[in-house]
Design a protein around this nucleic acid. Structure first.
Lengths: 239, 239
DNA sequence: GAGTGGTCTAGACCACACG
DNA sequence: GTGTGGTCTAGACCACTCA
């Protein structure tokens, strides 16, 4: 016989979908559900884990479990549109936090993309993007300290990459090798994105190059898959 | 205290990464691992689930659990490149199975994309794409039966969409609204893709329109995220 | 301190593969 | 039949939040 956790899962799913359990509302505790459905707590937890991985619940240790309707953001990709404008055009308030900035020896991936020797000093800047206050992305970028000595401090102060490029004489740049894939998040990524560790993220890897083809910046952005969909403005191949 | 399943997870991970557990090799049974690490079976299973969700293991009920190194395919998207050529250019053998073809009332999403009344009859064709024999995608497509009466049978016989379009006088078409996002797979999707249900998939939704902008086909392709990365040929916006 | 979710053990039975 | 993984119950203790 199949899965008794499915029964719980589907029951709660129905209540959330129908609105009987409203957004932000607290759902019954694990013990209460276990008694109500006459099953073990393990099965309740399994049902909750599935719902959380679907992005419907926010589980908070010590406080309870809450219905969390996810914003569904359509993020245009492939144009010259920037983070700010992209969100504003959908009526969302863009935001961001500075998480970390440091100088480290270039990791293999970044070194290769930037054409540097592995271990060369690079700025590593980590920022969190928000839409209407909800975390949606983690942007991790790498830039050579030789090329952009002051980048770390200036990004920390809130300057954009484009501005910093311009002050170093780079008036135009383009993207090379934009790569997109999905995976499960690391623990720290899930925490910073305030999402369940079983809910996937999308990773967007890209390299900026000058008009002449010189690589100047490499970045890896991690997007919450439950909150963001990408809209490609360049069409796509068929399967 | 922390997580004892992490210890097991990391130990096996190391053995797989270092090659001490080779591709295709069977790993110790749950009972054996539970005894070896001196933990409960639950913790062993949790470690296995994590490794399987990372795409490193193939768990087969009744047979055992095996190391499964995943192919990592870079699939170009955004150009005119087709499935066949895309894989061939990477030295992979393209393949595919016909799964199902039927005529159904148009579901809401497809009806809207095609500009049909909800419930109009459409062909629904499901195919599975393979690279070197490994399933990598499920392509679900919708076409009006009025516009393409013979499409179901012809696709089942192996004809391509482009060929069928051409025989109906459509010599050129383009993509509108390519949308890309990630989620966890449904049970049947995981089964058809032969992947773990906790490993994410990427969904690519797109609509074909004629040069005049008339929508003629809508499709939703589900890609195994553990096996495929997308390469966008049109750059990307920054985070 | 009481209540919540997080982790763990122990033990049972079921479903499936294979000899 | 034997052994594998899949599901489930029961019960314990820990970590965190909040009054």
């Amino acid at each position: 016989m199949g899965a008794s956790w499915r029964v719980i899962h589907d029951s709660l799913l129905g209540q959330i979908a129908s609105g009987r359990l409203a957004d932000g509302e607290r759902i019954p505790t694990e013990v209460e559900l276990k008694d109500r459905f006459g099953v073990g707590r393990h099965s309740v937890r399994r049902a909750m884990a599935a719902l959380a991985a679907e992005g419907l619940l926010s589980v908070e240790q010590g406080r309870g479990t809450f219905v969390r309707r996810q914003p569904s953001i359509l993020y245009r990709i492939g144009s010259r549109t920037r983070f700010r404008e992209n969100l504003l055009s959908q009526g969302l308030k863009p935001g961001g936090d500075h998480i970390a900035a440091e100088v480290i020896p270039a990791p293999p991936g970044a070194a290769e993309a930037l054409g540097l020797a592995e271990g060369s000093a690079v700025h590593r800047v980590l920022r969190r993007g928000r839409a209407d206050g909800v975390p949606i992305s983690l942007g991790l970028s790498f830039h050579s300290t030789l090329r952009f000595p002051d980048l770390g401090a200036r990004r920390e102060a809130g300057e954009s990459v484009t501005e910093i490029y311009r002050s170093h004489g780079i008036t135009d740049y383009r993207r090379r090798d934009t790569e997109l894939f999905a995976r499960l998040p690391e623990g720290w990524e899930a925490r910073l994105l305030e999402q369940h560790p079983d809910q996937p993220v999308m990773v967007q890897r890209k390299t900026d190059v000058t008009r002449e083809g010189e690589p100047i910046g490499h970045s890896e952005a991690v997007w919450s898959a439950g909150r963001v969909r990408f809209s490609l403005e360049c069409g796509g191949a068929d399967a």
